[in-house]
Nucleic acid binder design. Structure first.
Lengths: 195, 195
DNA sequence: GATTGAAATGAACGCACGTTCAGATACAAC
DNA sequence: GTTGTATCTGAACGTGCGTTCATTTCAATC
C-alpha cells in the first residue's frame, strides 16, 4: 500500500523537477539558484528541501531519470530483424526522443561536469549502455557484410553526434515536421553505413 | 610603433587567457572563480583586472578569439575546385582544427549561455558565418548534381554536429592518429553527400 | 471546533563570489 | 641611488549563494 502523503506534495515534487529541468537547461546548473527554482514553483527556497536533500542531488536525479527513461523507452522500441531495419528503427527512435525532450537531453549533455565523481560515473555508465545499443547494431551489420564501416567505434560516435545534434536547431512548429526530420536523418544515417 | 609595456604584462596577459581557457573548459565558466584563475597564473585575483575589465569579458574574448582564429584559419585553408574536393578539404580542416583545440572548441560550444545578449549575438554571427562555408559547398554540389542531399540545411547541421563530435572522444595519444581520424570522418562525410 | 501533522515560511548561518583600491613592490631610466 | 611607473598585493565591499530550523499555516481527521 502506498504511503499516504499530503495533497501538496503530490503536485510540488514533480513541479520542482519540471522547473529545475527547465531552468537548468536554459541557464546552466551553476547559474540557477535554489531561490529561482522555488520562485518558479511558487514557493520559498526552504521548501525545496522537503523534496530533495540538496541541489546536486536534484541535478543528478534529473539526469538519471532522463537516462533511465531513455533506456526503458529504447527497450520498448527496439526490434529484431536485419541490421538495416534495426538501424532505421534506432535512428528514428533517437531523433524523435531527442526532439521531444530537448531540455532533458540538453541537461544530460551539458551538466556532466557539475556532477560529483560517483554521480558522473553512474550517468556515464548509463550513457555508454545506450551508445552500445547502436554500436551492437553497427557491429552486426558490419559482420554480416551488410554495412561497410571505416571504424565501428568512430562511426558509432559520429552517428550519435550527428543525430543528437538535432536538438541544436530543432524548434517546435518549425519548417520541418517531426516525421520529415526523422526521414532526413535516416536517409543520412543509411548512407553513412553504405547500406 | 608598439606601445611600450612592462615585462610582466607580456607574459601575464596570455598566461591568464591560457589558464582561464583551461579552467573554463574543464569546470565551466560559472564554476571557476577569478581567484582560481589567478592562482593558476601565480598571482592574486586583483591583478587580473589589469588585463580584463571583468570575468564576462574574459570569457567573451576567449570565445571571440577562437572564432576569429577559426575563420582566419579556414580562409587560409579553403580551396577552389570541385565541390567534392572542397568538401574533403573542409572535413579534414574541421576535424584537425577541432582535435588540436579541444578546450577552445568546448568553451565556444558550452558557454554560449553565459554570454550577455550582445556578446552572444556577436559570437553566434561568427559561428553562422563558419557554418555557411560548409552550406555553400553543399549547395554548390547539390546544384551541379554532384551531391544528392535530402535537405541542404539539415545536412549542414548534421555534418557539423558529426564532425565536431570528435572532440567528445578524441584524446591525444589515443588509438587512432590524427590522419586516420581525418580519413575516417572524410569517408563518413563523403557517403553522406552520396558523392 | 479541537487535534494533528505535513507543508511552507522567513530569518538566519557561514561562506565564496566579483570587484575595487590604497598602498607596497619591483624594475627601467636617468 | 633616486625617481617614475607598471605591476601586484591584501584587505575590504556588498551581494547572493546553499542550506538549516524554529515557527506558522492549513487541510484533513476525529
Amino acid at each position: 500500500m502506498a504511503r499516504k502523503i499530503g495533497s501538496h506534495a503530490e503536485i510540488t515534487g514533480p513541479a520542482i523537477r519540471d522547473a529545475a529541468l527547465r531552468l537548468f537547461a536554459r541557464s546552466g546548473y551553476a547559474a540557477v539558484s535554489m531561490r529561482e527554482i522555488a520562485s518558479e514553483v511558487g514557493v520559498r527556497a526552504g521548501a525545496l528541501y522537503l523534496y530533495t536533500p540538496d541541489k546536486q542531488t536534484l541535478l543528478f536525479d534529473l539526469m538519471k531519470e532522463h537516462l533511465e527513461r531513455l533506456l526503458v523507452a529504447w527497450s520498448a522500441a527496439k526490434i529484431d530483424g536485419e541490421p538495416i531495419e534495426q538501424l532505421e528503427n534506432f535512428v528514428k527512435f533517437h531523433v524523435a526522443y531527442h526532439v521531444d525532450r530537448r531540455d532533458a537531453v540538453f541537461l544530460a549533455y551539458m551538466e556532466l561536469r557539475n556532477l560529483s565523481v560517483e554521480n558522473f560515473d553512474e550517468i556515464e555508465t548509463m550513457r555508454r549502455r545506450y551508445e552500445d545499443e547502436l554500436e551492437k547494431i553497427l557491429s552486426a551489420g558490419q559482420e554480416c557484410g551488410k554495412f561497410r564501416l571505416p571504424d565501428t567505434r568512430v562511426t558509432t560516435m559520429a552517428l550519435i553526434a550527428m543525430l543528437t545534434g538535432v536538438h541544436v536547431w530543432y524548434r517546435d512548429g518549425g519548417r520541418l515536421s517531426r516525421e520529415r526530420i526523422q526521414r532526413i536523418y535516416w536517409n543520412l544515417a543509411r548512407r553513412t553505413v553504405r547500406a
